[in-house]
Design a protein around this nucleic acid. Structure first.
Lengths: 197, 197
DNA sequence: TTGTAAGTGGAGGCCCCCGTCCACTTGGCG
DNA sequence: CGCCAAGTGGACGGGGGCCTCCACTTACAA
């Protein structure tokens, strides 16, 4: 690949990440091209479809999510590990307006191996926190999806506000998740597949 | 107004409510017209713009919300009143896919008198619940908006699932809202105006 | 029954978005 | 330095959504 082409590709990706984060996934391809200082054709040469651009732009963030979970599993304090995962992932989501949509859109295309791995990681985290007696016994791993969806509802608001609001929401939820409170309605098997029609 | 015209108008409105609830506000006007068995022109004769149709279609629901708050204020048990408001409004929101968007879209067009009235009603409800010692002292009326936004994040999911998920979310949040728990990040002045860019 | 104003439907204008095509430019190897 | 494959930009086709226009139909009063 030619040097200028590689540079253009990188700039397009950076701009895409920027705009997706700022304005969500529905920024026009033309806007990305313009801001990157290239024509649309250049953009489509590197990313044959808008979806592929989205996927590429967000793989970084998905990796971060996975890393957050893996890291939390090494935390000696199970509850702190659990709490940190929710806080970090929700912060990511509140900061980046396209995050949820990208996640949902690319979920079926992710290698199921990766999905299983993160899912099992989180399940392990949950089990550890329950065993330590700090997480309520009727917490379901599906509640992670619930939190993610709830937190995604804040996407419409300006970023700084969304971040503050998300922090407060997560704080509320963490209090509710702590062991020793009343019974709940049964867990909802909120597999993310459901979000996809 | 001619008899047949009145009937058509009513049918359009019913269909609009149905489709907005099912598929959100982005159903094409043509789809509404087709399902109502009329042409688009008829639709635009009665509702000069899509926004006006949305507004008209949802005023009923807004009235319900207000009624829910007013009724809760007459409940002898302040906490039950408070709880019921959250439960009912969130159920409405989970059942109707267009609700949140319509609410946000028409919020600035509502007579400020109405807005003030519902807002003060809810504030009173909050104060009552705090005074009775059942609602935590650092709960902010703005947290209602927080709950609404969080709950709106469930909109993408099939209705039955959304309802169940919403119930679980609200149950979690209500536990967190009860008096006697730890400190939170400060309240976020989540006026709905913020959602409008 | 008949006139007419109110009512109606669907074609089409306008705009915006995704993705393609093609004539032109340019990096960098020989 | 010269060549050419790799790279580029912008016009354009296709589709879909909102709304308008206008020739036709229909309710209903006289």
């Amino acid at each position: 690949m030619r040097a200028d082409a590689r540079e253009n590709r990188a700039r397009v990706l950076a701009v895409a990440r920027e705009l997706f984060a700022e304005r969500g996934l529905d920024v026009p391809m033309a806007a990305i091209a313009r801001r990157a200082g290239v024509g649309v054709a250049t953009l489509y040469r590197r990313f044959p479809t808008k979806e592929s651009l989205v996927l590429e732009a967000f793989t970084e963030q998905f990796a971060v999510c996975q890393a957050v979970i893996e890291e939390a599993l090494t935390d000696p304090d199970p509850w702190r590990g659990f709490r940190t995962v929710l806080e970090k992932v929700c912060l990511l989501q509140a900061t980046d307006r396209g995050f949820t949509a990208a996640f949902v859109a690319s979920f079926p295309d992710m290698h199921s191996e990766v999905r299983e791995r993160t899912w099992h990681g989180f399940a392990a985290l949950v089990q550890r926190a329950k065993d330590s007696g700090q997480l309520r016994a009727d917490f379901s791993p599906h509640d992670l999806t619930l939190v993610l969806l709830a937190n995604s509802g804040l996407a419409g608001v300006p970023v700084e506000v969304a971040v503050a609001a998300s922090q407060r929401l997560v704080a509320y939820l963490l209090e509710a998740f702590r062991a020793g409170t009343d019974a709940l309605p049964p867990p909802v098997p909120l597999s993310l597949d459901l979000v996809l029609r």
